[in-house]
Design a binder for these strands. Structure first.
Lengths: 230, 230
DNA sequence: GCATGAATAATTGTTAACAATTTTTGAGGC
DNA sequence: GCCTCAAAAATTGTTAACAATTATTCATGC
């Protein structure tokens, strides 16, 4: 139906599901029935299957043999490991950024931060999550290491999943302007405060999780993918 | 032919190719023809295709649409990025290890180091590469973070690929007992020397690469997979 | 009512055939 | 010799049908 050079048809499916998870439109535990995906995404079954395999590799979906795929439900241990890994990687990214010679592109960061703030003010939950992730990803991109960027991208999606699973509904989405603080700290060109700031930020995220309770909702794939999300 | 619970048939194929690359039996650029893999690995074509997709995701193979898969030939930039990423991640791992309360399992590390030394003395190239990778992976495992461990595992395989591509044949495999030094530094429980040591080690690896020249050999898959490697 | 279990439906897994594309081969002309 | 180009072969991509497994339904007996 769509042109979409066939080479990346699988990428398209992966990206669509990935994004739906990252933006928490697909809650953990949601069953992903092949036939439904084929219909919702106008894809063929083989491509869907391969895409699911890829997502399984990224721990975004879980595949049980003969039972099918569902959106993953990361355990508490996995959740902790993901945040610890992010701490390690984002610390490295900040060190690279701060030690970089040449003007670091603070303008781009500020712009991203502003977009996030705008989303917060409008109260658009999905946009907030997306923009927040984009901020962290932008740091990685500015650091100029595609390998770290790739790894972090996956970890951010997994973080969304974890937050979606464990977040306390009562808590506010994001305390204050922590991303602004990080920008300021990076601007100072002194690694230690910047690292402390990032560490504090990730710690905040983790602390706001309720690691004892979660609920699983059921979801209509047609609705989730129906809008202009692909 | 083999029992090999079907659930992980794809895993088996991926692991076999992965290991062949990590041990440099499959040089960069080698074409991976589906039909040959089906025969060499006693697998069905679908499984082989999915396995290749996975390996492509891990940047171990490159898939060109309608042209097939080959073992990747990482660019110089990618090589630098991989080593920089390892530096960030392994630094984090060491910090976790050093700050861990409770006895850190130095015995396991020493045993691994001894195995590597034995391989070096016997001059078994494949074993040396494998054991060296295992040492780094063991550090990750002892740090108790499966996420970092997974990421590092991929990076180590990619490192093998890079070394295989860019290494100067004249240089010795591995200078001196750098892994022993790392153990000693960790034992000291002081993070800084340990980190310096690891950084030095990775730097050594990178410095011993020739980033201007490489050659592509052709390889018979039957031979590569023929021995007891699966 | 509800536990049991066979029949049915839904879903995933596998296979083989076919289509499309690229690569190789080889004949003909210069 | 070697360039060109068409035919053949090899290789990858796609599809649909079938098999195997799991989930659901529903009648039956207690």
């Amino acid at each position: 139906m769509k042109p979409a050079n066939k080479a990346s048809e699988i990428d398209r499916i992966v990206a669509t599901i990935d994004r739906a998870v990252a933006e928490q439109r697909l809650p953990p535990g949601t069953r992903l029935v092949e036939a439904q995906l084929v219909e919702s995404l106008n894809a063929n079954r083989n491509h869907v299957r391969v895409a699911l395999q890829r997502l399984a590799l990224k721990r975004i979906v879980t595949i049980e043999p003969n039972k099918g795929a569902s959106i993953a439900q990361p355990s508490v241990e996995e959740a902790r490991a993901v945040f610890a890994a992010r701490s390690v990687i984002e610390r490295g990214i900040i060190e690279i950024l701060v030690s970089q010679r040449g003007a670091l592109n603070l303008a781009l960061l500020r712009k991203q931060r502003d977009q996030e703030q705008a989303a917060i003010e409008r109260g658009q939950r999905e946009a907030i999550i997306r923009e927040s992730g984009q901020f962290h990803l932008l740091l990685a991109r500015l650091a100029g290491n595609p390998v770290l960027e790739d790894v972090l991208k996956d970890l951010i999606t997994r973080s969304s999943l974890i937050i979606s699973l464990y977040q306390r509904h009562s808590d506010p989405q994001c305390g204050c302007d922590e991303h602004g603080d990080i920008i300021a700290a990076i601007e100072g060109r002194d690694p230690l405060p910047a690292i402390q700031c990032m560490r504090h930020h990730l710690n905040d995220l983790e602390q706001h999780l309720n690691l004892d309770f979660w609920e699983t909702r059921s979801v209509d794939l047609q609705t989730v993918f129906g809008d202009d999300h692909d």
